[in-house]
């Protein structure tokens, strides 16, 4: 398993860069992961989505799909793609330190 260092801490990630153990994630790591994804600065709406991802994962054991994000996170689908151009569910999951959502929708 590859090891990455975020905010001075070594964490285990998979080949695609997703956290193996979401428990290793801290908020301080998010800006650094985001920069590696091409997001220079995490704005308030970014954080709103990241926190929503963490909450959903904690409750359901899996990250939400883009449709669920658009309906319940308070950020519209259009805006989600502006915030996370390379795929909101996937990018936000990576930045939030949770596994890649596996839904098809």
């Amino acid at each position: 398993m590859p090891i990455a260092t975020y905010a001075g801490m070594a964490v285990t990630i998979n080949d695609e860069g997703f956290f193996e153990d979401p428990g290793q994630w801290t908020e301080a790591m998010a800006p650094e992961i985001a920069r590696a994804q091409g997001i220079d600065e995490l704005t308030e709406p970014h954080w709103q989505v990241i926190k929503f991802m963490r909450t959903e994962f904690a409750e359901k054991g899996t990250g939400p799909t883009v449709r669920v994000l658009g309906k319940t996170s308070g950020v519209s689908v259009k805006e989600l793609y502006q915030l996370f151009p390379k795929g909101p569910a996937k990018m936000a999951a990576k930045i939030a330190g949770i596994p890649k959502p596996r839904g098809c929708i």
């Binding site: 799909t65 883009v66 449709r67 669920v68 658009g70 519209s76 689908v77 259009k78 793609y81 839904g103 929708i105």
Partner: peptide, 17 residues
């Protein structure tokens, strides 16, 4: 399964860019 109806799906896909 959370698959949207066709009309809503097309609108959503347009919103994805």
């Amino acid at each position: 399964l959370d698959i949207p109806p066709i009309h809503e799906f097309v609108e959503m896909i347009a919103d994805t860019g």
